[in-house]
Simulated scan of single mutants.
Amino acid sequence: MSTITSTQPSAPVRNLRWRTVDITVTAVVAVASGVIFWGAGLISEPLSALFQFVPGMSALTWGLFYFAGPLAAIIVRKPGAALFAELIAGVVEAFLGSHWGGLGTILPGLIQGLGSELVFLAVAYKTWNLAVTTLSGAAAGLAGMAVSWVMDYQGYSAGFIIVSFVCSIVSGAIIAGVLMWMLLRLIARTGALASLASSQDVSSRA
């Protein structure tokens, strides 16, 4: 009796070890994001003023400060990328002169990066898609508002806090999640990700 041998290829094993190119790309994303964070900080008050008709709704703009972690993670696809990128982005923003001060910039960056990182950890760094990226952005938004609540919003009304949490999460999901996934696909089409773990996956979905 002959033995039937499966000819289906086995799934490739994902290498989670950091390479020099991964460190370099993550650092570049982090520094560029930090500069953007700094620029966004300069216009944050005028932007927030557009949403003052509902107390707490200004948090809809906060996703502009959450995207470094999800973007770096989905590009290099290595453990710790989201945390590393968001933290370094916060350091760069503080160095350039954030009006929130050093601690008020770096600590939120650390917490936001941790929130983003935990989503990728929850899927064991095996699932890289729009849904997970969106959840990562939302988690950064949740963490960002949590640290802001502790540092800046003690004594504010329950309504303000609830609206701020909801808007921060929504902003993180859209700006740091959905938009960063779309940006990844655009970058991939240029061939710039050829040496990175994200290249093959994104190309196969194009």
Rank of each mutant, 00 (worst) to 15 (best):
L184K: 09
I36E: 00
G113H: 11
D201R: 12
T3Q: 15
G144T: 02
W100L: 14
L107D: 00
F67H: 03
G39W: 02
F84R: 00
L60A: 13
S116N: 13
D201F: 10
G41L: 13
F165L: 12
L110Q: 01
G102S: 08
G141Y: 05
T61K: 03
T24K: 01
A59K: 13
V163E: 01
P46G: 15
L184Q: 11
S198M: 00
F67D: 00
T5D: 13
V147S: 03
L71C: 06
G56A: 05
S10W: 07
A49Q: 11
A192N: 07
E93W: 08
D201Y: 07
L110Y: 04
L103D: 00
S2K: 12
H99L: 07
G39K: 02
V28T: 15
A176Q: 02
V91Y: 05
S33N: 07
L47A: 12
T133A: 10
S171T: 08
A139I: 01
A85E: 01
E93K: 15
L186H: 08
I75G: 09
L179W: 09
S168K: 07
V147T: 11
T105Y: 03
G159L: 05
G155V: 06
V91I: 12
A73L: 14
R205E: 09
N15F: 12
T127S: 12
G34L: 05
L96G: 06
R205K: 14
V132H: 04
G191F: 06
I43D: 06
F53T: 09
S157I: 10
W18H: 03
I23W: 14
Q52V: 14
A131Y: 02
A197C: 01
A139K: 06
V150P: 02
Q112V: 11
W128L: 00
S148R: 11
H99K: 11
A158D: 02
S203A: 11
S116Q: 12
T61W: 14
R77V: 09
I88A: 09
R77G: 05
L64S: 14
S48C: 13
A82Y: 07
A11N: 06
G155M: 05
W62C: 13
L96N: 09
Q52R: 15
A82T: 09
S164V: 04
Q52S: 15
I162G: 05
R19G: 08
K126E: 07
Y125C: 04
G56C: 03
L130S: 04
A81R: 03
V147E: 04
V25F: 12
T7L: 14
